[in-house]
Design a protein around this nucleic acid. Structure first.
Length: 127
DNA sequence: CAATTGACGCCCA
DNA sequence: TTGGGCGCCAATT
């Protein structure tokens, strides 16, 4: 499997209604600190590919535009909004609300005092 | 084989 | 807070 294919497979794991950053995808794909590769790879995603490319945004929480994607940057935002993701006046998303949090092993989780049942839902969206 | 081509992210003024 | 510079790398031609 190619490096780019690994990136695509990772992007495919981003669930509906959530977003991930290029850096996040890079790390998950085993390419720590190589966010640019993710950008390079996504640029080459075939239009018919089964990859939710629109769920990948930059570390600032905004959509990375490209002169070659005129209109598509708007498309990306539309697709995200369709999934319930909201943008503030600065064109950024609220990470706390919609950033994808991949499988985190309960053991890796910082074990403060985790009330078994009622975990704190992350509905804190005070932006 | 070498040149070209790109959707980033961090650091420092 | 914002903008510019720089490191980084695979696929294609």
């Amino acid at each position: 499997m190619n490096t780019y294919e690994k990136i695509y497979e990772t992007v495919k794991q981003v669930p509906y209604g959530k977003v991930a950053t290029y850096g996040q995808i890079a790390t998950l794909a085993g390419l720590h600190r190589k966010a640019r590769l993710v950008g390079y790879a996504l640029f080459r995603v075939a239009p018919d590919a089964d990859v939710p490319w629109h769920r990948v945004i930059n570390a600032k929480g905004e959509i990375s535009e490209s002169p070659f994607r005129e209109g598509n940057d708007y498309l990306q935002r539309s697709l995200l909004e369709r999934e319930g993701i909201e943008f503030n006046a600065s064109g950024r998303v609220n990470f706390r609300q919609c950033q994808w949090q991949p499988e985190i092993s309960p053991e890796d989780q910082p074990s403060f005092d985790r009330p078994d049942s009622h975990n704190s839902p992350q509905t804190n969206c005070s932006d």
